[in-house]
Simulated scan of single mutants.
Amino acid sequence: MEKIIDIGKYIEIIVNWMTVNFKPFFDLIKNSGNAFIEGVEWLLLSIPFYIIIIALTALSFFKVNKSTAATTLLGLTLIYLLGFWQETMETLALIVVSTVTALIIAIPVGIWSAKNKMASKIIRPILDFMQTMPAFVYLIPAVLFFSIGKLPGAFATIIFAMPPAVRLTTLGIQQVPAEVVEAARAFGATKKQLLFKVELPLAINTILAGVNQTIMMALSMVVIAGMIAAGGLGEKVLEGINNLNIGLGFESGLAVVILAIILDRTTQALGKKK
C-alpha cells in the first residue's frame, strides 16, 4: 500500500540535519560520556573481585536479609567462576552510569509534572511514547549521533529507563496528604522547604520504587545495547545466539539474571527501610 503520510521521511531529515550540524556537540558528549563509563569500569575492575563480593554481601546482610546475602555471595562467586567477571563489571558500569543520568533528569521532571498541570499534560504522552516505542528503534539515532560503542548503548538505555522514575516521582509527590502540605504552609514553610523537608521525604518510598524500576529497565537493555558494541554480558549473549552456542548463551544469560536479582532485592529493601 502506498504511503499517504510519510512521517519517517521527515524524522530522517531532522536526524540527518542534526547529525551534520551538531557534530561537534555530539563528539563532545561522546568523548566525555565514554570517558565517564570507562572510568567507572576501570574503578570496578581495579578493585579485587573478592573485595566487591564481600562488600555487596555485607550490604545485603545488613540492609536486606540473610537469604539475599547468601544469594549475593553465591551468585557473584558463580559469575567469577564462570569467567564473566569482567563482562559483569562492564555491564554494571553501564547500568550505574545510565541509571544515575536517567535519575538526574527524571526526578526533576517528575517534580515539575507533579507541580504543574500543563507540564503534566505535555509530559504524560511523551512518556507513553518513550515506553511503548520498541527499544531497538532508539539504537538508530544513538548510532547516527555517536557511532557504535558504549555511549550509544547508554543513550538508548537512558531513554528507555527514564519513564518509570518520572511517573513514580510525580505519583509520590501527588500522594503527599494535602493536610500535611497545608500545615507546613501554615507554619511559614517556603516552596523550597515544603519540597525538600515535607514532600520529598514523604514521597521517598514511591521515588525509590521508581529508582528500582529504572535499574531493572536499564538491565533489560543489556542485550540490545550489546548489538552496537556496548560490551558487557549483552555481547556474550549475542555471541551465543549468533554462534548457536547454547552453553555460552545460557551461562551469560544466567549472569544477567544473578545481577538482576541482586540489584532488585537490594534497591527494594533500601526503599522499604526508608
Results as ranks from 00 to 15, higher is better:
204 I>P: 06
45 L>C: 06
208 L>E: 01
260 A>S: 15
22 F>R: 06
116 N>Y: 10
205 N>A: 08
109 V>T: 14
52 I>R: 00
213 Q>I: 09
161 A>L: 07
135 A>K: 10
103 L>V: 11
274 K>E: 07
17 W>G: 04
28 L>I: 10
151 L>G: 00
230 A>M: 10
203 A>M: 09
138 Y>P: 04
184 A>D: 06
186 A>Y: 05
257 V>F: 13
250 F>P: 00
144 L>A: 09
20 V>K: 14
79 I>E: 09
201 P>H: 00
223 V>Q: 05
160 F>G: 01
24 P>M: 02
44 L>I: 05
55 A>R: 02
142 A>N: 02
175 Q>T: 11
46 S>F: 13
242 N>V: 09
20 V>P: 02
80 Y>E: 03
18 M>S: 14
69 A>V: 03
159 I>D: 08
11 I>P: 02
243 N>E: 10
134 P>W: 01
39 G>A: 04
256 V>M: 14
37 I>L: 09
147 S>V: 01
109 V>Y: 07
182 E>K: 00
31 N>K: 13
252 S>K: 08
22 F>V: 07
241 I>H: 04
160 F>A: 13
165 A>P: 08
94 L>H: 11
224 I>A: 03
104 I>V: 15
53 I>E: 10
149 G>S: 06
192 K>G: 00
183 A>H: 02
190 T>M: 03
183 A>E: 04
29 I>T: 04
